[in-house]
Design a protein around this nucleic acid. Structure first.
Lengths: 232, 232
DNA sequence: CGTTTTATTGACACGTGTCAAGGGTGGTGG
DNA sequence: CCACCACCCTTGACACGTGTCAATAAAACG
């Protein structure tokens, strides 16, 4: 990528909202590039945080693994999202493992460089807080869901969240533009792939959504999903 | 409180870590005071964020309420903790309701004043990120717990977390220095007070902990609790 | 075209929520 | 100071959602 390409990547990230040209140029100049292939990990949970990444394009799943090998998907990340940045700023180990679910490209900075960038450009600090805050709020919401709601509602809410973050209009509804296996939905929803399978099968019957296997999910009746997510 | 008293309150908050004297004085001078009585709310979930609070002393429970009236306890806050600050910086509604579980005292700032403070003292921005980041990490941990672990393990983990945050050594173990009803533990653990009651009853039998009713919980065998929290 | 991964579906068991009833404790007001 | 009243906790019985186990089928991949 040349400098202009990098800058336009940065401009699309909310982390650089309201940043002036100097900031963008400086950040773009000091970044390195790293492609990620599908199923590749950017780093592993527990490692010392050495780099902060910005996803230029592609799609990444953030995994958290239990000591006994079970897995929870914290969230999916798309173009413009930061990865590992909070850990870098806190000088703590990475709390989760990012895995690419499709080929992609990242820009990255060393830990010190990133900290320096933020120190020299206060607007970035503000944006970092905004960003962390919104993730915090989303996690609070999910915690509440898992704590109080039945599986069916949670699956509906989870799919709707993916739509909000990354949904794309297609002719017969809204599409989630990346592959989501039943197993992955299960790990996002705190249930098993069996229950997800049963639930989605029922919804497909009802014509709420469609899309088997590796094809992308298409929600044909989002309003029905909203109803399910909000039902008493 | 006079200025010195305020400053020493601020000094005990990790939000003012590494802050120089000027910063502390400036923050102390611009703060107002507000006592909170037991069971009083500082503000309510959903309101526009107008003030940022710092808990000088006392203990506050952060509640998140579902539309259907169910409740989840996000976390407990103690002296030095910030309340509502992330919402203020994000110019978003408060995502939860803080309720005092004992009489306490807060310092607070208006939204603009707080934003200005942080803008003028970059070290505070860094600390805000640190703080938000650590809460984020804690929530990720809890989400994983609720998603993958049995109730007994979750209760053990929850109690240990309280001990870590606020535990106090006493003669026969560690004490959680505020009242925790079974119902509150249930809302912290994503279960019902019935299950909590049964579990704690069993633990009391085993001599792991003691403390009925309004008295504070005393963990007599923390190592056993750790075992339970980590058991396969 | 075989091999591997992912999904489907059924049977079953078990943890835990739900419902119900009673017992303590602490606080309040007469 | 005592009695009453909330509120909280305890305990049992039971049902139900969902996880677990197992076997098959269907795609995807090389």
């Amino acid at each position: 990528m040349n400098l202009d390409a990098r800058i336009s990547v940065l401009e699309r990230s909310s982390f650089f909202n309201d940043a002036n040209r100097d900031t963008l140029v400086h950040a773009a100049e000091t970044a390195s590039e790293c492609p990620v292939a599908k199923d590749e990990q950017l780093f592993r949970q527990g490692e010392e945080a050495s780099h902060s990444y910005l996803l230029a394009w592609g799609r990444v799943r953030l995994d958290q693994t239990t000591s006994d090998g079970r897995n929870v998907v914290i969230r999916y990340l798309g173009p413009g999202d930061l990865i590992g940045t909070v850990a870098v700023l806190r000088r703590k180990p990475y709390p989760a493992t990012p895995v690419a679910v499709e080929d992609g490209m990242t820009l990255f900075w060393g830990a010190e460089k990133k900290a320096q960038l933020i120190a020299e450009h206060p607007v970035l600090a503000t944006n970092a807080i905004e960003l962390t805050g919104s993730r915090l709020e989303e996690l609070q919401e999910r915690l509440r869901e898992v704590a109080t709601q039945r599986v069916e509602r949670r699956i509906a809410a989870t799919l709707l969240r993916q739509v909000r973050h990354a949904g794309r209009r297609v002719e017969d509804g809204v599409e989630i533009p990346f592959t989501l296996t039943r197993g992955e939905i299960a790990e996002l929803t705190a249930t098993t792939l069996h229950t997800v399978s049963r639930t989605l099968a029922a919804w497909e019957q009802e014509g709420i959504l469609s899309g088997k296997r590796a094809s992308h999910l298409v929600i044909t009746k989002p309003h029905r999903l909203v109803e399910i997510a909000e039902q008493e």
